[in-house]
Design a protein around this nucleic acid. Structure first.
Lengths: 177, 177
DNA sequence: ACAACCATGTAAGTAGTTACATGATTTA
DNA sequence: TAAATCATGTAACTACTTACATGGTTGT
């Protein structure tokens, strides 16, 4: 149950409509917790039913846009959830399965796909490093900024890991084949 | 659709029953693609319907144990799937959401949970390093061994990443709080 | 004969994905 | 006035999780 809490967080930062939320997700929280607009609309409905959000119906009677705002009960639930302990999810990656399969059934075209994926990881790494340079200069060291920076650091370390791993993998796959 | 291919791989390595498969999963492929026995039984049924597996009914009439074996069509499907390109799944981690939430709603007991998780990552790292020492000595360098080693390397790098990141996170959270 | 473990399943629920539908507002 | 974009939804499906049920085999 993470999506509802992701939405609560995002709406505490800035109340907005489902549509705007979906767009903001794509450029911030969505980097590490993707959600489609359908998921978001469905979840907003549930959150309102639970009494964690309220929706302000369209101002001036025009349009269908609904703006959501977090209620005190929602804030308390978010606090509860954030402090609760959760085990880390184990690594779960299809590519590992494909490597095991390759080991059993012999050479396939895996190497070219790893090359392609490595390029994608490099691109994402460059993007994250740009975001780091733009949004987290050394003098910006409030608690809030440091926590957000930690999240971005995880992304950077994650992408670096897969670039490095891909290089190792390509060396192995290049030997024979 | 990864579980069926994980099962095909495992059954090519060694034909066996659903129960044995579930146990073997817990100690090898399951490290990076966990599955419950219910998932496995259901999937084995589907794979048999698709004509990718055959089941040899219990020998000697006793017991209910069914042994599964991969058919040629299953092997071809596995080959197709392994060579097909797949995009890497983006990082998806609840902990990142909890950090963003902390940044908005202020201090919670996150630090103690990160400490706990760090210990879990350290334990898993130690286990993987032990497996590496036991199963992949330098002289064992067949293609198959090297591919399996790559998978384990990914696990080691993954756990190392989260140990290192946790240390950074604890330094940040210790400053105030 | 009882416990421990082997072995296979059903049922119900949650989360996430994909495809499709619909209407309102803004801008060229 | 047509196209682009804003905005919200329904429906159907797939993957995964959790709880429960049931009977067979092996060892003491």
């Amino acid at each position: 149950m993470s999506l509802p809490h992701a939405l609560l967080t995002s709406l505490l930062e800035q109340p907005c409509s489902g549509f705007e939320l979906a767009r903001r997700f794509d450029r911030s929280i969505g980097f590490f917790w993707h959600a489609t607009h359908q998921q978001i609309y469905r979840e907003l409905g549930r959150l309102e039913e639970s009494g964690w959000l309220e929706s302000l119906p369209p101002e001036s009677g025009r349009g269908r846009k609904k703006v959501y705002r977090v209620l005190p009960a929602g804030r308390e639930e978010l606090q509860r959830w954030t402090g609760a302990s959760q085990d880390p999810k184990p690594l779960r990656d299809e590519l590992m399965l494909r490597l095991r399969a390759e080991a059993v059934i012999g050479p396939t075209s895996l190497a070219s796909d790893i090359q392609r994926r490595m390029d994608m990881h490099r691109e994402k790494l460059a993007l994250y490093q740009q975001l780091e340079a733009d949004d987290f200069p050394p003098e910006k060291n409030s608690r809030e900024a440091q926590l957000q920076h930690l999240v971005l650091r995880a992304g950077i370390m994650h992408e670096s890991l897969w670039v490095e791993w891909s290089e190792q993998a390509l060396r192995v796959l290049a030997r024979e084949n």
